[in-house]
Computed example of a mutant assay.
Amino acid sequence: MAINDNVLIKIRDMRDSLTPVEKMVADYILTNLEEIPLLSVKELAKLSKTSDASVLRFCKSMGYGGYRNFIVSVSASLGSMDDEQRDRYTDIRPGDSLSTIIANISLNNSKSIEDTLSVIDREQVARAVEAIGKCSRIALFGVGASGLVCRDAEQKFSRINKICHAYTDGHSQLTAATLLGHNDVAVFISNSGSTSDILEALDIAAKNGCTTVSITKHSKSELAENTDIVLSISTPEITFRSGAMGSRIAMLTVVDMLFAGVASAEYDQVKKYLTKTHNVLAVKHRK
């Protein structure tokens, strides 16, 4: 289950995977948050230029059996948010002062972590930690900014003596996926969940019988639907100007959860490895 289910975050993240009519309902809700708890099914259907049946299908797509349960969840989500939280993501804008930029980036990163905590499933995290702890080796797959997250995970898990490697280009990913087996874990990192190189590697890894884990946007995607374990993140990439800043922070946070989970479960052994690697690096730094 998610740590703190927030239906408004879920609507935002799943919008792109909805049908055109469901998107009309979603867009009306997201732009008129305060009035939604006061509306009946018929009123929301009329205002969103859809139908009663479309609104009910939308509620079902969001995981609710009926409109009433959906509205109760919307009210709870609104009640947990203050005015600043409701629209706190800020894009890069021309002419901002450096102090404004520092404040905005800090808020965006904090919000990415908060929203990810609202959607990530603790049971899925536990399954991933267990699988990584027991596996023979870890293969990490990602391109671009996601590839950088793979490198971070590689560095962390290598320090506790896990056989681990990051693959960040299409050719090496296909080669690595081909050599994976039942005792291995393959972690696929992609915000969109639709990166072609990642999906190709996933198809091969899954056929080889290894455990597959995805770290991806909280939405319906080919990656999420075809991995054994899904670790959802939530962060809007506001425009092309923002690059992958928010998603990178959210993904790094999930990697830290996995690393800390494995390290805690195997603490006595891990402590020795961390001490050894710390000492050898400390000697190098003194030279």
Rank of each mutant, 00 (worst) to 15 (best):
S73R: 02
C59Q: 06
G142A: 08
I29F: 02
I204Y: 12
E225W: 00
S40D: 10
T31F: 15
Y89A: 05
E222S: 13
H171N: 13
A26V: 12
L180T: 03
F58I: 02
N32Y: 14
K162I: 07
I9K: 00
L38D: 15
T195V: 01
T275A: 09
S219V: 14
I138Y: 03
L231A: 07
M24W: 12
I105S: 01
A76M: 08
G133E: 11
A260E: 12
R248T: 14
A206M: 11
A201T: 07
L202M: 04
K162S: 06
D152C: 11
A131L: 06
S158T: 04
A153F: 01
I9D: 01
V283R: 06
L44E: 03
S242N: 12
N226A: 05
Y28A: 01
L252C: 08
S61F: 12
I198N: 01
V129D: 02
T275F: 11
N279L: 13
A76L: 07
P20R: 04
R88A: 14
R68E: 15
E225T: 04
I215Q: 01
M1R: 10
T212G: 02
R122A: 13
V254E: 09
E130I: 15
D83T: 11
D115A: 08
A2E: 03
E266T: 04
L179E: 10
R137T: 05
A244R: 10
E35Y: 13
K276S: 10
T90L: 14
E222T: 14
F240Q: 15
D16E: 15
S214Q: 08
L202A: 04
S106Q: 13
I101M: 07
S219M: 13
N208S: 08
V213E: 03
D82K: 00
T211F: 01
P20D: 06
L117C: 15
S190K: 07
T211I: 05
R88N: 12
E43W: 05
D169I: 09
D268I: 12
V74R: 00
L281H: 09
K134H: 12
I204G: 08
M62E: 05
S194T: 14
N279V: 09
V230T: 12
T100V: 12
C150H: 03
G144S: 05
R122W: 07
S51I: 10
I105P: 04
Y267A: 00
D228F: 09
A126Q: 15
N69V: 15
I71W: 04
R137H: 08
T275C: 08
Y167G: 02
S99W: 05
Q155H: 10
G209M: 02
L38P: 11
S136G: 15
K287G: 15
G261A: 05
I233Y: 07
C164H: 04
K217N: 11
L30N: 07
A53D: 14
R248L: 10
L38F: 14
L223H: 01
K284A: 13
K271W: 10
N109T: 03
I36D: 03
I189F: 06
M62Y: 03
F157G: 04
L38I: 12
T19C: 03
I105A: 02
I105H: 10
I71R: 02
D228K: 10
S196M: 15
H171W: 13
M245H: 09
T235M: 02
G65P: 05
A153K: 05
E237Q: 12
G63S: 09
G65K: 13
R286D: 09
K272S: 15
M14S: 13
S77Q: 06
D13A: 12
L281A: 10
L47M: 14
V262I: 11
L202F: 00
K220P: 10
